[in-house]
Nucleic acid binder design. Structure first.
Lengths: 203, 203
DNA sequence: CTCTTGCCGAGACTTTTGGTCTCGACATGA
DNA sequence: TCATGTCGAGACCAAAAGTCTCGGCAAGAG
């Protein structure tokens, strides 16, 4: 509270002064993505990003609450890679398309290191961890929609555990993405999708 | 390289002087586990561990290469919780027992926070990340053994992807453990085990 | 017993990094 | 023309990992 005068001096007064420079924003996000993608395992620091973008550190912190938030923003920017909301009319088709798009999108050489770094940062950044939670929840919801649609068509067994199915997909995705001990190819995606369909089909 | 005299002065000379105090080792591991288990999200620092164990920081670094190594050691100590190498003679039984033991063991209130913290630390600790890699690889191998045994008994379809099955188990485990958005109960474990069996059964 | 060796607790110190603060320059619109 | 708010630059602060040093002391060798 502690109002100065009127109701809300900040909201009422129109914006004056110099405006935000869009070029700067783009430069920061681009530099962040670039450093993340080409990082040789060494963590990407804020100073490095600022230096690479030719920007003051304060300019970064003026617009993003934490380093991780920049990463997430940078990723979301190019996340037109999001799974296409297909609807083939049958679970098998929908699921195979979704999982394949998700897996190959995540494993792509320009996104995989970003996701890995994002996960690393989230481990020590409360802000980012929260954002990642929302992000992953949204992705789960999208997949769950596909399954529920199939359920309404009567394609699923009555006792099928949709949440478990969803987590099987994203569990394998992140587990392999981070441990990097096995591939995340379209082939694997199709296999996994078929596994899920086979195990949950209405009897 | 750079030998002083003879072959290896260090290895030849028998150990003299004060010996390592086992009590100290135990105190450090116990303090680490305790702080990890009761951590309210705030990261556990080395100073905190040393303080809690009534120990000098150097004493920790004398015996462990990094903070994460202490955590891993502490966990391994109590990891008699490892899945029991059962052999019921059939895939369904073996898998259900293994996955249930693994899930409930990992989700137990005294181990879950430790695993979470371990994952967090591994994100920024090269040493620990390597150790975790070995650790998880060993767990995967144990599960894979069960599946291969079933394969030799002819219980699996010829084109079953054992690695994918393994990763579905550990993927769901870690994904739910870390995101904490859904439970890791025995019920879920059994469902998952049955799903895998159903989808991979020999046709 | 006594002496050397090496562990122990304590804490100062170094380095890295995320994040804040301040400053002079300058763009923007009233 | 002038208040407002952004910009780059860099000093500054705080937290935490890891190193170094020191006095004390336990354990075995002689």
């Amino acid at each position: 509270m502690t109002p100065s005068s009127g109701q809300n001096a900040q909201a009422d007064r129109p914006h004056t002064g110099r405006r935000r420079n869009e070029r700067v924003r783009e430069a920061i996000l681009a530099a962040a993505m670039d450093l993340l993608a080409h990082s040789d395992g060494t963590p990407v620091t804020v100073d490095t990003i600022a230096r690479a973008a030719g920007v003051g550190k304060q300019t970064i912190y003026r617009w993003w609450p934490s380093k991780g938030a920049v990463f997430l923003d940078a990723l979301s920017e190019r996340a037109a890679t999001v799974a296409p909301e297909v609807d083939t009319g049958a679970l098998a088709g929908d699921l195979e398309a979704f999982v394949t798009a998700t897996f190959t999108g995540a494993a792509a050489p320009e996104t995989a290191p970003v996701l890995r770094s994002l996960a690393r940062e989230a481990a020590h950044d409360r802000h980012l961890a929260g954002m990642m939670s929302e992000f992953t929840a949204a992705r789960r919801a999208a997949l769950r929609d596909i399954l529920e649609r199939a359920g309404r068509r009567g394609e699923l067994a009555g006792d099928a555990d949709l949440d478990l199915m969803v987590d099987q997909v994203y569990g394998v995705l992140w587990y392999r993405l981070i441990l990097d001990h096995a591939p995340l190819t379209a082939d694997v995606a199709v296999r996994l999708a078929r596994t899920l369909v086979a195990a949950s089909a209405a009897r």
